[in-house]
């Protein structure tokens, strides 16, 4: 609605300063209109977030349709993990994970992914990497907007499905450890991952001062359980503030810390030695 502002007061600073001095010296002068250089553009968006359809996806969320050229895309790649299950990487285009604004209005090109294991919704992904526990056969990843509507093109949700169990040499159980070992050589004792970890599991890897996935906020409902699986490349201690829970980190070995989010608030998860913030738990 606003036309670009007419160019005003674009004279170089020094010239303006000299002009000001001359005005001053002359003892008179007009009041300057503004000395605030125009900042960033403040162009008001059209608020376009696709077309809300009456149709719903199989988990009951309404579809939000975009033309194919504007719609996000997603591809998933699953690799077996040495301790069982799969490490999954999402490649998205025209899409940005926005964990902070989940619950807000839908804006094209942002939101989160929901993971459906064997057709059943198990978790959300707020970043490109996550782990799927063993026993799964297929994984479907679907992209959602901040308002929990499903992005779609021509009435079809934006999603991808990868078979897990049938992959050529991929193990379907943690017992048959894969020889085609992924990069991290783990000499860890064979921990038996809880097959039904109550609540969500968040995998965090610390390499030097890099935290993967990048630190963000995890939203929890009060009473929800969460398991933090932290793998560090050096000895350290992971600490959940507020709950005052700690776990010792041995290099290369994932340490699991399960807690029930029974207090509301914002709690930081930090490493003690390296002083890194791994994530923040928002319990509401």
């Amino acid at each position: 609605m606003n036309r670009p502002a007419p160019r005003r007061r674009t004279a170089p600073l020094t010239a303006a300063a000299l002009a000001a001095v001359l005005l001053l010296a002359a003892g008179c002068g007009d009041r300057p209109t503004t000395h605030h250089k125009p900042g960033t553009g403040h162009e008001q968006g059209t608020g376009s977030g696709g077309t809300l359809l009456a149709a719903r996806d199989d988990s009951g969320h309404r579809l939000r349709d975009l033309p194919a050229a504007d719609a996000p895309t997603v591809r998933a790649e699953a690799r077996p993990d040495t301790e069982g299950g799969w490490n999954v990487h999402l490649a998205v285009e025209r899409f940005r994970f926005t964990p902070e604004s989940t619950g807000g209005g839908a804006l094209a090109g942002r939101g989160h992914a929901r993971l459906l294991v064997d057709g059943r919704e198990t978790a959300r992904a707020y970043g490109p990497w996550f782990h799927v526990p063993p026993g799964a056969r297929t994984l479907t990843v679907r992209l959602y907007a901040d308002d929990h509507t499903a992005w779609s093109v021509a009435g079809a949700p934006v999603e991808t499905t990868v078979p897990l169990a049938s992959a050529s040499s991929a193990p379907s159980t943690p017992a048959s450890a894969s020889p085609s070992a992924p990069p991290s050589p783990s000499s860890a004792p064979a921990r038996t991952p809880d097959p039904t970890p109550t609540g969500r599991t968040l995998d965090i890897r610390v390499t030097g001062s890099t935290v993967t996935p990048a630190p963000s906020r995890v939203e929890l409902k009060k009473g929800e359980r969460i398991t933090l699986r932290v793998t560090s490349d050096r000895p350290d201690t992971v600490h959940v503030h507020g709950y005052d829970r700690e776990a010792t980190l041995t290099p290369g070995t994932p340490a699991a810390l399960t807690l029930t989010a029974d207090r509301t608030g914002l709690f930081e998860v930090e490493t003690h030695e390296s002083g890194l913030v791994l994530t923040q738990l928002v319990v509401r």
């Binding site: 600073l13 303006a16 000299l18 010296a25 503004t34």
Partner: peptide
């Protein structure tokens, strides 16, 4: 006067968008 002008010019230019400030119209 010229010296003073130089001083003021420096001052003026320096503070034209002084360290922090905020404005809206």
């Amino acid at each position: 006067v010229s010296v003073l002008s130089v001083v003021l010019a420096v001052l003026a230019a320096a503070l034209l968008t002084a360290p922090v400030a905020s404005a809206h119209e």
